[in-house]
Design a protein around this nucleic acid. Structure first.
Lengths: 365, 365
DNA sequence: TTGTAAGCGTTATCAT
DNA sequence: ATGATAACGCTTACAA
């Protein structure tokens, strides 16, 4: 199977058996199709041989460079098609610098919060011409580490949510820059972007307080230390509420079902509660559902306030009052942090690396 | 700055200036830190030179291979740390085959349907040891093509939602295997996975019919031809309903807001409508909202049925009756199709490549 | 217009 | 235990 130029047009370079002998300088040159029928992927060399040109000419044709005869180009492309040739991204990357791949590790793609963050990351990455390899760790620390092990080999930087402490992360990182999402500023030596939980909780609690609530509970998520739970307790104290750890129920599953179950427990423990603060919107919605099932109307029988600002909160009844977070911005910030790290600049620290929640009043509180 | 072995232990290979002259066989060997302060990324060669060993030994140390003296290894790793050395994934990929990267192009990460599909893709890809580069095309055909242009260079296969016809896709694909999501089986020559729209619409319509509805409208999305709209009209005819194109409103935006607007139009055009069929759950929820705002209770004043089976549908009031799709399975199937393509096998065709919706009765119809 | 030569950074193989 | 050498598949620079 060989492609000849149109008959009669036999230029010196393309003609006779010269290319087959001259161009083939390899020692062990396996044919593209081996006897056993297993196909080695075609290389530029195979295409060159079939088309009767040099590798360089193939490169010119495939990459649409100028300085090539249209006829030759057609012939080369036909040969490439025949062999199902595709350039190796590795070989290309080796010689053309600049392709940047970032890793993104997300705990749970089914929590609407994270796709929004991811959307921000993808958007910002696209603007920079980067690609993003996404991992869903499905809230499993082992999978988080596995993600790191792989991405540290295949990505130029990693962003994501991780529960492991710094030293463990470092061990799985192999020197690849890491930007943590969501952890507070004091808890890590890595660059990070996060949410100003304190400011959010304060706004939410003040709102409830002004509405007359004094017996406020919290459905906390599972989280690093120093997070929303502490902010809640601090603000309760500042407001002079008789509220302590006993008013906080931990909700291991950050979902509506998790919120429903946690609310059951809180109601059992503190039936006098008049308002609850949810770790996130899903949990808060779960709380609303349990409250109503228990014969408490929302917001009159129980006020509920969420944290996240999912659009989902507008659809439930009553609509969820929440601390809205700009999730896309969070993702964009993470990409900016990565860019800084790569440029050897200092990452943003403190408030510049946070997103501040904003209270959105809807029906539930 | 050089790392010497512990004093006195100067083996021949690691000692004196020998390495610096013998090992450095390059002609233009730039130092890792250039005079202008711009850092070229350190290579294995730089580490070897600094540690006074061969490149091979560096490789052994970095990759945790055996056959290396613990002391040497420590010295090499220290040098690597000093130079912030990370192996080039390109050079590695060139020499170690096997790393598979797939591309996934999603139209809208904020529609909860797609993160679920993506989760299925990621899960199945992880099981095969593949990585997935995700693109959010944000419902923009130009961005779809851009995604293809990039991924055709950087990925070994692509899955995704595309609006362009086959020939356009081919042009941007450069021979990379493609698996289309969501298109019907007849509409493309590419391998595809999809949803059995006909079966879904039939179930939904029959349910409405049995509940006594005869004046049924549809809020269609924008889609390839031969999709849910046609299935709707066909089934309406089969059921003997006096329903035609005039009862179908197109909803360009696949969102709650889009559904709200479309429902307004349908009510204006066909106020006698007693039930509506939504292209997806978001649109259906929008329809419910408009209906109630217009004084129609759901399901008595207007029955509403969705298509997707988002968990979101359980949270609205009344809960949404819908045709549930196994979205994760859809994603897994797409990965399986890619695997077949890569293995040179025939992709699944027909019903094996579809997911069949299942009617889930909740409150809205 | 086309071909030749020299890397790109890594690992595998085989010596030592 | 360590090193020399040869790939891996491609592109850029230069020569013809």
């Amino acid at each position: 199977m060989r492609i000849a130029p149109a008959s009669g047009e036999c230029g010196a370079a393309a003609c006779s058996s010269v290319p087959d002998t001259v161009l083939d300088v390899r020692t062990d040159n396996q044919p593209a199709e081996r006897p056993d029928g297993v196909r080695r992927r075609a290389t530029i060399h195979d295409v060159a041989r079939l088309a009767g040109v040099s590798r360089q000419t193939v490169s010119r044709a495939v990459n649409d460079k100028g300085e090539i005869d249209p006829g030759t180009k057609e012939r080369v492309l036909e040969a490439a098609r025949l062999l199902d040739y595709r350039p190796s991204r590795f070989a290309r990357g080796l010689v053309q610098k600049g392709a940047v791949t970032a890793g993104l590790v997300i705990p749970d793609l089914r929590n609407p919060f994270f796709p929004e963050v991811a959307a921000g990351v993808l958007e910002a990455a696209e603007a920079r011409g980067w690609q993003v390899v996404v991992w869903d760790s499905r809230i499993d620390e082992a999978r988080e580490r596995e993600a790191l092990d792989v991405l540290s080999h295949q990505a130029d930087a990693v962003m994501g949510y991780f529960k492991d402490p710094d030293d463990v992360l470092t061990r799985h990182l192999g020197g690849v820059p890491l930007v943590l999402l969501e952890r507070g500023p004091q808890q890590t030596g890595f660059a990070a972007v996060g949410i100003d939980a304190g400011a959010g909780v304060e706004q939410g609690m003040n709102h409830l307080f002004r509405a007359g609530h004094r017996r406020i509970g919290m459905l906390d998520g599972v989280h690093g230390p120093g997070s929303r739970r502490q902010a809640f307790l601090d603000q309760a104290r500042r407001l002079g509420l008789a509220v302590d750890e006993d008013w906080v129920v931990t909700c291991p599953e950050h979902s509506v079902a998790g919120g429903e179950a946690a609310m059951e427990r809180l109601l059992a423990r503190r039936p006098e509660v008049t308002a609850v603060f949810g770790f996130n919107d899903l949990i808060a919605i779960g709380a609303m559902r349990t409250a109503r099932r228990r014969g408490r109307s929302v917001p009159d029988g129980l006020a509920v306030i969420g944290f996240d600002g999912l659009s989902l909160g507008e659809l439930v009844e009553p609509a969820l009052t929440t601390l809205h977070i700009d999730k896309r911005q969070l993702g964009r910030l993470a990409v900016e942090q990565v860019a800084r790290l790569r440029a050897g600049e200092e990452p943003l620290r403190g408030a510049d690396a946070w997103v501040t929640p904003e209270l959105v009043l809807r029906g539930s509180a």
